[in-house]
Design a protein around this nucleic acid. Structure first.
Lengths: 204, 204, 204, 204
DNA sequence: CATGAATGAGTATTCATTCAT
DNA sequence: TATGAATGAATACTCATTCAT
């Protein structure tokens, strides 16, 4: 905790913040290291004292993002209400800090869309792993509900779980990329949640 | 008097096919014109006989894609069954030719993620317009169902419609990008469809 | 003189005329072979049936030009009036067909200015040779005038002759490149001629 | 805190000197940026730190040249001897720093000869303006001499003035391009000057 | 002979990264 | 440690030339 270390950490954060801002404005490929240096109000050379390459910036950004996602998963796993409520809570939890990540969405798109870049950053691997965790959570709750007789055993659990994962991601993505309207979005999540609830508890 | 006879249209298609293939493999920015030329089995210069710039390739690819999307919208508008059935038919229709477009998805991601590129290609504008058409279709059917007493007037139509649009896109995207399993996907769309049906016809 | 040969020659001339026109409009380096073909109303490939390379076009154009220049020199040498009159006649003769060559002047400039191009076309060599012939003509007449007592022996003949060559070229160049006004030009040549005459016959 | 210290102006001059040298050797179009970089003993990229494009090099070179030409015009206008002497002084002044510009002449030729290049560099416009200034100087002195009775009013002043401009340029050009012999050149200018003097003061 | 489709060598320019200060 | 000047690999695009028809 020497002041040196605090300074270094603060500078690292400043660079990351600048990078996020510029990446969000122009996209990864259109952003020059010089742009980031300017935004961070430091020299180009200094960036390289903190990050060895340009690619290390999105790598770090995604690392932080996925760390938060993992927190989310941990939170999910601590939800101990009855299965259906847990699923509904999970849906809400997914969007808890969405505004915080909204401006990184275009960067995620650009990296996921470029296999070369993705390979060396490893985003899709980590991202799919997160999707899988989410999927596991929903699947476990559904199966729990089925074994408790609360959810019909006719419901194809793995399919429904994966459907939840992709539809939730769809809503989040549309909010971040095309339709940035918080209240509307909340309402949307609520109808969706209500629909899911009705479907799960209705006997088939 | 008898110049070389060439099927220009066929060659254009061949180039486009090569471009789509290489873009899908490496992404737009990582693809060199030389890569496309090699894949199309022709010289670099020949590409420029058919497309003036590199950007014109995705532009053309998206143009064709959006043309098909427009066809889809036209088809949607010709669905004249009762409102709820129309909505369910619409959901199915959305995924009708999905495999045809699956390999363009990463390219769409990369372009949508890079504001600079998107601006000069104009993809997001056209894409959002398509989302809006889809939204209008669902909204109209829901309102129709409400005025006919089939769907509860308590359902917030605009919100539900937009939710459908984003969730459908989410499922399609996940299928194309992360989870390319046709049968699983069909099943997923079917549960979703069933859930929507139940929700719409259940009195609140 | 078979019709074939006449046809070929006519086509050669057509290409040359087109080349001269386009070179005059845009300059050598900015002219594409395609431009010349279009102007000559034939296919690009046809040009190569008549001229092996692009450089061969200016080479041929300059060849014709210098051929005319040689004719001029021959004409000069047939002037058999007294020395001073011969010099004055020579001055006029220099501008005899100037309008015919005016539009080639920029091409001459561009080639003379580019040593690489000049080397492979060999223009400056031929051009300087022509200047030298002109110089020899003037020098011979002056020396003739001096030996006949008509021109002062104090006049430094080689220097005066070379001065004539460069000043005449200067007037021609300015007419062709900067000040294309025929009447004004004629008047200019006349004062110059009159000045030379006065100077030559005035005893020092 | 202590960045590399560099004399940017000196480096700019070094690049310019290298550019002038290489342009003189090969011509503008045959010169690659890599050639200039090599001559200036630096990397290609460094050139672009000082000049945004290749065209900016001749543009700057001509700018400096024309600046000197303007100085010359200013000097001319400060010549306050009697009209004929002023004209003779003007003739000498024209060649004052000729050696300094001699090696730029081919570049001037190439640019003036290529309309495309000339348009974007704007040389001929500036050059003709300079010719015009020179012309105005001679015209004014001649008319002054005529109103003072020193020069015959029969002399067509505008024509004679323009004739001076083009013949002086002719001598300068030949010196720089074809006949680089300083002593010979000086003698040539002197006979010319002497001839002009005789002509102006001789009553018609 | 005539054509224009195909070709690929050639070149200006950009930008991530290095390194002298 | 911080800097920004220097670097050169990398790449889209052009155009003289070739050659199948």
């Amino acid at each position: 905790m020497s002041p040196k270390i605090v300074d270094r950490e603060a500078k690292r954060q400043a660079i990351l913040a600048a990078a996020i801002a510029v990446f969000a404005e122009k996209g990864y490929h259109s952003t020059k290291m010089a742009d980031i240096a300017q935004r961070a109000e430091m020299g180009k050379g200094t960036l390289y004292e903190y990050f060895r390459t340009k690619e290390e910036l999105p790598k770090t950004i995604f690392g932080l993002m996925l760390q938060e996602f993992d927190q989310q998963i941990l939170q999910l796993e601590q939800v101990h209400s009855d299965p259906v409520d847990a699923i509904l809570a999970g849906i809400q939890l997914c969007f808890q800090d969405i505004d915080e990540f909204a401006h990184v969405t275009p960067l995620v798109f650009e990296v996921l869309g470029n296999k070369d870049l993705d390979r060396s950053i490893g985003l899709s691997e980590d991202f799919e792993q997160w999707l899988e965790s989410l999927n596991r959570f929903f699947l476990a709750r559904i199966q729990e509900g089925q074994s408790q007789g609360q959810i019909s055993v006719d419901l194809p659990a793995p399919i429904f779980a994966r459907m939840l994962v992709s539809t939730l991601d769809g809503m989040a993505t549309h909010y971040c990329m095309f339709h940035f309207q918080p209240e509307f979005f909340t309402a949307q999540v609520n109808v969706f949640s209500d629909m899911v609830k009705s479907y799960l508890v209705t006997p088939k």
